[in-house]
């Protein structure tokens, strides 16, 4: 429908909408996050839901302790290799439609701890992530910004066609491989369906040190 016509009608007291808009409007304004904090960022997540920042203004204050009742997973903090299987399992247990916010440098890439032997270098190696928030830890405002970004993303999703959300595609995967504990590392160390090492622009031609300096 033409936007001008729609706003003209609204001035006359007639609200015209589409099923898609109504459906997405409902979805985006009642995101229930999973009550699940991993590390430092979780404290800022709590601060975001407290009086000063008040995430409830954006319809996302109902933190649910059970993954079955939640539809937004905020990965707030360092994911260690010992914790990664549990995080993936929690994601698998959430009902569609489900979204992931990767909060903080650690959840994105391992952050300051990425040299660690027990630190997973980014949760996106196992599960798809919708919004990344940089920062160590990100301020509550940044979390609110990520939430609004996610709301805009949900709002734009068409209900039909190839770009429709995953829960409307019967054959789209909803569960991902849960890694096992191996003798030296997790097995597999990443899920190739979700993540592949980005191509690095370096020269491998022996003694040629291009890119070194």
């Amino acid at each position: 429908m033409d936007e001008n016509l729609k706003s003209e009608l609204r001035k006359q007291g007639i609200v015209a909408t589409t099923l898609q808009e109504l459906y997405n409007w409902g979805r985006k304004n009642s995101l229930w996050p999973l009550n699940f904090g991993l590390a430092c960022c979780a404290i800022e997540m709590i601060a975001a839901s407290m009086a000063r920042y008040d995430m409830a203004r954006f319809g996302a204050e109902v933190f649910r302790p059970s993954p079955r009742q939640a539809d937004l997973m905020i990965v707030a903090g360092t994911v260690t290799k010992k914790m990664a299987p549990q995080v993936v399992r929690l994601y698998n247990q959430m009902a569609e439609p489900k979204y992931v916010i990767s909060m903080g440098a650690c959840a994105i890439s391992g952050g300051p701890f990425k040299q660690g032997y027990n630190v997973l270098k980014g949760i996106d190696r196992y599960i798809p992530v919708d919004v990344y928030i940089p920062g160590c830890p990100p301020r509550p405002e940044a979390l609110i910004d990520a939430l609004m970004t996610l709301q805009k993303m949900i709002d734009r999703q068409p209900l039909t066609g190839p770009d429709r959300p995953r829960h409307l595609q019967a054959d789209a995967p909803s569960e991902f491989i849960v890694p096992e504990f191996g003798a030296h590392d997790l097995d597999p160390s990443q899920n190739p369906e979700v993540w592949q090492a980005p191509l690095v622009n370096i020269s491998l031609a022996g003694t040629d040190d291009a890119g070194n300096d």
Binding site: A39, T78, T80, P112, F113, Q115, Y117, N118
Partner: peptide, 26 residues
């Protein structure tokens, strides 16, 4: 334990004295 074992001590041993200061925050 161990679900948040992020190797603070190992990283600090490969880091300068001052470089460990931000890690102690965490």
């Amino acid at each position: 334990f161990g679900y948040l074992h992020r190797n603070h001590e190992k990283i600090a041993e490969n880091e300068s004295y001052l470089g460990s200061m931000p890690y102690t925050d965490r």
